[in-house]
Design a protein around this nucleic acid. Sequence first.
DNA 1: CTTGGCACTCTACCGGCGAGAGTGCCAGGC
DNA 2: GCCTGGCACTCTCGCCGGTAGAGTGCCAAG
Lengths: 337, 337
Amino acid sequence: MLEERKLEVLRAIVEDFVATNEPVGSKHIAERHHLGVSPATVRNDMSALEDEGYIVQPHTSAGRVPTDKGYRLFVDQLSTVKPLSAAERRAIERFLGGAVDLDDVVRRSVRLLAQLTRQVAVVQYPSLSRSTVRHVEVVHLSPNRVMLVMITDTGRVEQRVVELQMPLKDDVVTDLRTLLNMRLAGRPLSDAAAALSDLPDAAPPQLRPVLTTLMTVILETLVEKAEERVALGGTANLTQNALDFPLIRPVLEALEEQVVLLKLLGEANDPTTVRVRIGEENPVEGLRSTSIVSIGYGPGQGIGSLGVVGPTRMDYPGSIAAVRAVARYVGEMLGSS
Amino acid sequence: MLEERKLEVLRAIVEDFVATNEPVGSKHIAERHHLGVSPATVRNDMSALEDEGYIVQPHTSAGRVPTDKGYRLFVDQLSTVKPLSAAERRAIERFLGGAVDLDDVVRRSVRLLAQLTRQVAVVQYPSLSRSTVRHVEVVHLSPNRVMLVMITDTGRVEQRVVELQMPLKDDVVTDLRTLLNMRLAGRPLSDAAAALSDLPDAAPPQLRPVLTTLMTVILETLVEKAEERVALGGTANLTQNALDFPLIRPVLEALEEQVVLLKLLGEANDPTTVRVRIGEENPVEGLRSTSIVSIGYGPGQGIGSLGVVGPTRMDYPGSIAAVRAVARYVGEMLGSS
DNA sequence: CTTGGCACTCTACCGGCGAGAGTGCCAGGC
DNA sequence: GCCTGGCACTCTCGCCGGTAGAGTGCCAAG
C-alpha cells in the first residue's frame, strides 16, 4: 500500500510536470489525481521520494521536479503504452506511402517523426554493411575512367569514380561488370572482403591490376568509409520551450555531428525493443540534458535505426509509440521495394 | 566633404555594431575612428542619418543601430572586399580536396562555409535540369522490374525502381540501355523531353509499351519531381547571440523547408555575382530578421547556388568573400570530376 | 499511518531610486 | 556656414526593500 502510493505520486509528478513544465506541489497532486489522501500525506511520500533521489525541488518552497532517476523509474515501471490513434496510423501510412525512393523514404520518415512527437527526429540510412548487394554497375566514362555504382537491396545507391592505370576497352568493362556481379550480387556487404579476396588470382592476367584497383575502391570507400548516413529534422522543435534548454547551442552542435548521432542510434544492444536514454545516461556530452528514444528498423530490426531527441521532460509513452510505429512502417517499405 | 563624412560615420556605426552588438554612440565613433571631429559634430551627422532612415535608436539615450536601409548602403557603397587569408584559402582547398563523391563535396562545402562565416550555410545540389546526362543504366532486378539509374556530369546519381507490365529478357534490357543512352547521353536534362519524344515510334514494336513507361518515369520523377535538393549546416551558429534572434524558431522552421531554401538560392537574376538580401528585402516571412548572401557556382555559375544565412547584423565583407571563394572551389571540383 | 495546523523559507513581483550613457539644443568661435 | 563645448533632459539598467504567494517540514492529535 505504502510503496504503491508512492509510485502513484511519482507518476503524477512526472505526468503533471511533462504537461505543465512547472514544479508540481503536494496540493495539486492530492486534488487532481484523486488519490484519496490529503496533501500532507502526499508530502510525506514526496519527502521519501526525494530522499531516494527520484525527485528534487529547484529551491525550497517550490514544487518537485523528477530527476533522471525518476524518469527512468517512470519509463521502466509506470508508463503504459499509448497506442496511436487510427487517424495517426492512417497519416503515417499515407505520408510514407508516397515515397519514390530511399532518400524520399528517409526524408519523409524524419519529417513524420518530428511532427508526431514534436521533437527532433533522427533516421539512419540502411546500414551498408548489413545490406546485401543487388547489383554492381561499371560505367565506362572515358578510356581510363570508370564509375562504380553499387545498388543494395535496401535501395541505397553508392558510386565512385575510379581512375585506372591503363585504358580499357568496352568489352573488358562488360567482363568486369559480370565478374563483380557474380561475386557480389546477393551477398551481404559485410562479406565483400571475403568474396573478393581471391578475385584477382582467378581472373585473366590482363585484368588483374584493374581488378585490384577496383577491389580496393569497393572495400575502402564503398564499404568502410561511406558506411553510415543519417537524416535530421524538426530542430525547430528544440525551441518550443526555451526554458527546457538553458543552452540550445550544445544540443544543436551535437546533432550536427553525424558521428555522434550514429553513436546514439547504433549502440543499441537489442535493436528489437525501444531504447530510452535519459539525461545523464547519455554518452554524449552535449546531450546530457536530453533524452533519446530509439529503435532499429527493417527485418530483424538490424538494417538501421531511428529515433527522437528531446528534453528529459518529454512525453515518453507518446514518443515510444510513435518511434515504434514509424520503425515498423519504414521496415515494411524497405522490405517491399 | 559633408556627405562624405556622413557616410564615414555610417560605416563606423555598422562596423562597430557588427563587432560589439551594442548600439554605438557618438563619443565612441569620434574617439575610435579618428575622424578628426568632435562628438557633437558626429551627433549632427547621426541625426541626419536617422532622418534619412539609415539608422535608428532603440530608445532615447541609447546609441544608434543600422536599419536594413543602412546595411544596404553599407554593402553597396561602403564595404571593401575582404580577401581571404592564405591560411583560409589553403584550408578550403584541403577541406574540399578530400571529397570522394558529390554528396561528400556538398556536405564538406556546407560545413566549410558554416565554419568560415560562423553562420548557417546552405548549398544546393547541382540542378538536374542544367546538368547533362553522362550515362543511363537499366538494371534488371527481376523479370518485370528494372531500376533506372541516371548519372549526370555533375556527379548526381538518381534512381527509380520501375514496375513493368510484362516480363523482359536480359537482352531486351540491354537494348533498352543502349537506346536510352544513345538518346540521352551528352544531352542536357532540360532537353530530355524533346530527345525522347519520338522514341517509342522509332523503336521495334515489341519494345514500345515498355519504352513508354520508362519515358514517363524518366520525365516525371527523375526530371521534374526530384529536381532540386539542398544541404544545410551550422544551425548551431544561430544561437551565438540569443540577442540577435528574439525568436530562433521561425528561422529554424523556414530553414527546414527545402522549398523555401531553394527559392532563396534560386531567385538570383544574375548568378555570377554575389547577391545580398537584407532583412525585410527577404521574400520569406520567417527570415525577415536575417540576411542572406548567395551566389551561383559551376561553369557560368549556372549549375547550382550556395550561400549563408545570418543575422542582419552580420560581417558582410567576410561573408561575401567566403561565399565567393567556396563557390569558386566547388565549381572547380565539379568541373573536374 | 494519516491529517490539519502552523511557522518558515524562498521566489517572483513591484515601485522607487540613483548612476550612467547618450542625446538634442544652443550659443559661441573659426 | 560649419564645428564645438556645455548643459539639461531622458531613458535604461541595476539595486534595494517590502510584500504576496506558494510550498514545504514538522508536530501533535486522531
